[in-house]
């Protein structure tokens, strides 16, 4: 079975996630874009791993990526809540206390 379409999908999801991360003006949307990027990378790992029979390294790597993504999401949401509580906004453009004022 050809994994070509899966590779295109992986690249597509990675780039859509990156575009979401860059263009959306909301902290939670940025986290969602990050999750999409991680899923694109995972699809790549699984697709290339499935091309090699009798080896589970690709899947194993993807499993650990999911593990780290869980930790990242938990800590990320906690930080977003904290930032929202302090600044009363979730627009990263308005969170500028550390930015130098001209």
């Amino acid at each position: 079975m050809s994994v070509g379409p899966v590779l295109y999908l992986a690249a597509f999801l990675f780039c859509v996630g990156l575009a979401t991360l860059i263009t959306r003006r909301n902290l939670i949307m940025m986290l969602l874009g990050l999750e999409l990027m991680l899923n694109g990378a995972n699809l790549n790992l699984v697709a290339f791993g499935s091309a090699r029979a009798s080896s589970v390294e690709g899947e194993m790597f993807a499993l650990f990526v999911i593990l780290v993504a869980v930790c990242e999401a938990a800590v990320g949401i906690a930080i977003v809540l904290r930032v929202y509580h302090f600044f009363k906004t979730s627009d990263p453009g308005n969170i500028s206390q550390l930015k130098e004022r001209f």
């Binding site: 070509g4 690249a11 780039c15 990156l18």
Partner: peptide
């Protein structure tokens, strides 16, 4: 464009 062009390039490379 930011989503589509790099996706096409990356997918072709990986393919």
């Amino acid at each position: 464009l930011l989503a589509f062009l790099p996706a096409l390039m990356l997918g072709t490379c990986l393919n």
